[in-house]
Nucleic acid binder design. Structure first.
Ligand code: MN
Ligand code: MN
Ligand code: ZN
Ligand code: ZN
Lengths: 129, 129
DNA sequence: ATCGGTATTGACAATCATTCTCAATAAGCC
DNA sequence: GGCTTATTGAGAATGATTGTCAATACCGAT
């Protein structure tokens, strides 16, 4: 039986308000800055659960950190991320989905998973870097 | 002035003989198993240098480890990697290249870069896991 | 071939994100 | 209100990677 706690809700709310990708560490720091007494391990657990429940997306930053973001659209999708400010836009990639499945099958690979992310500079960061 | 050492050469040779992606840690273990006295930090340094010199490719495993591989083909390309044994095949992704550029432009993003990797189980690992 | 300046090395410590441990706490059900 | 037990949080543990620094050895100059 899964129980509802204010900690889980605090993480969910913080992610939703933010909108962009953030690390577990930074999220924990922000929550404590607002007065929360939530523990770091709990933030990790909540984020992992949100990803499992398809309420959040996760990806690795180029530096190897795990970043989390509230999912606005349902189902599998990918991201266009500003490497300057973290601003994120969700993108559809149906063509990439079928391409990944096809190329795996052609080489005899099974259970394919793919990592497809596009990093760039958003409009604002392009103008004022 | 860059100097030539047997350590750097040992890492380059080991990477070339292997052909597949491998972590710095595993590579160091294998080298020592063959009697080498090379240090772990040196393996990390050599791999970083090889990537800088475009003699090796690097990518992050889904577990967050950095993996390295000797570059066989020149220029930009992507990989199909067995997450069980590390066996790797280079793949063309022309359709994905143009898709990434287009989706970035459509959202006002500049200087786009993309991460495109496919992980699965190779034919052999599918049969005997 | 010898010498000397300095890149490079390697053992070890340090860092950093993430996970584990486990006693204390508090949801949810009666 | 009590009980059961999932959940929490502080701190330890892990594991990859990087930093430190004295000792080493490459290589150009002599
Ligand atoms: Mn996809
Ligand atoms: Mn590409
Ligand atoms: Zn931006
Ligand atoms: Zn395999």
């Amino acid at each position: 039986m899964k129980r509802n706690t204010w900690q889980r809700e605090a993480v969910r709310t913080a992610l939703n308000e933010r909108g962009d990708f953030i690390s577990a560490q930074k999220l924990h720091t922000e929550l404590k800055a607002e007065g929360s007494t939530i523990g770091l391990a709990t933030v990790y657990r909540a984020l992992t659960d949100l990803v499992t429940a398809d309420e959040a997306d996760a990806l690795q930053s180029p530096e190897g950190e795990n970043l989390y973001r509230a999912c606005s659209s349902d189902g599998h999708h990918h991201h266009l991320i500003c490497r300057q400010c973290g601003h994120t836009e969700e993108i559809e990639a149906e063509a990439v989905e079928s391409w990944a499945a096809k190329v795996a099958a052609e080489h005899g690979f099974t259970q394919p998973r793919h990592v497809v992310d596009v990093f760039g500079l958003c409009r604002e960061c392009t103008l004022s870097p």
